[in-house]
């Protein structure tokens, strides 16, 4: 599903990858751990076409990450960035815009309500703007968007860093239970309790 074959990347004279090989099967769950600055987030950015590699080959679903495929590839990936860089708008409007654009306008109302409930979100939060939210609230809104979009591949960068333990456990179980290909970057050891997850130490 996702293949990195001897990938080289240098940024500002710093070697980020020198001959990286990394493969992920369909529906596999992979946890990447390692100290910061080692290129974990860069891995996601390459898949999304935000960074271009110097040498080697990266494929997504057997397709190279090039102009012809990029829209289709992006459409299959849900990316949760570390700081959840959503534009500053009212949460409700942002959700509507995202869903409308992804042709998911006629979302099941009950499903939406269930997710809100599950993530402990409410109407008050939906009527606030992104900048007014706390880190934990923003993280849950980010996850909500991902759950609603329901794309086949999830790239999650520190998805649970701002959550309390109860919420953390709940969300980790939910994510691991998905029938999707999921790569997680996290310092959280809670992920490891699950033995279906493959752990990559960098």
């Amino acid at each position: 599903m996702i293949n990195f074959e001897s990938v080289y990347l240098k940024r500002n004279d710093k070697e980020i990858f020198s001959g990286l090989d990394f493969f992920v099967q369909k529906n596999e769950k992979v946890l990447i751990q390692g100290k910061s600055g080692i290129g974990k987030t860069t891995l996601f950015k390459i898949l999304l076409g935000f960074e271009t590699i110097d040498k080697g080959r990266v494929t997504f679903n057997k397709k190279d990450i090039v102009k012809e495929h990029i829209t289709e590839i992006r459409h299959q990936i849900f990316y949760l960035s570390q700081d959840i860089d959503l534009k500053n708008e009212k949460v409700k409007n942002l959700l509507e815009e995202i869903l409308e654009y992804n042709l998911l306008k006629n979302q099941d109302k009950a499903h939406f309500a269930d997710l809100l409930n599950f993530l402990d979100l409410n109407d008050i939060i939906l009527n606030q703007s992104i900048k007014e939210l706390s880190g934990g609230e923003r993280q849950r809104i980010g996850l909500l968007i991902g759950f609603l979009l329901d794309r086949p591949v999830w790239l999650l960068d520190e998805p649970t860093s701002a959550l309390d333990d109860i919420m953390k456990n709940k969300i980790i179980d939910y994510i691991i239970g998905q029938d999707k290909t999921i790569i997680i970057i996290s310092h959280d050891d809670v992920w490891k309790k699950n033995n279906t997850i493959r752990i990559e130490r960098w």
Binding site: F50, H75, S81, D83, D85, L86, K87, Y101, N102
Partner: peptide, 18 residues
């Protein structure tokens, strides 16, 4: 100035125009 937000929108909308 806002590049990360722009890129994040790109990933959510998968459309440059949007």
């Amino acid at each position: 100035k806002d590049e990360r937000v722009y890129l994040y929108s790109l990933s959510l909308f998968s459309s440059r125009i949007q």
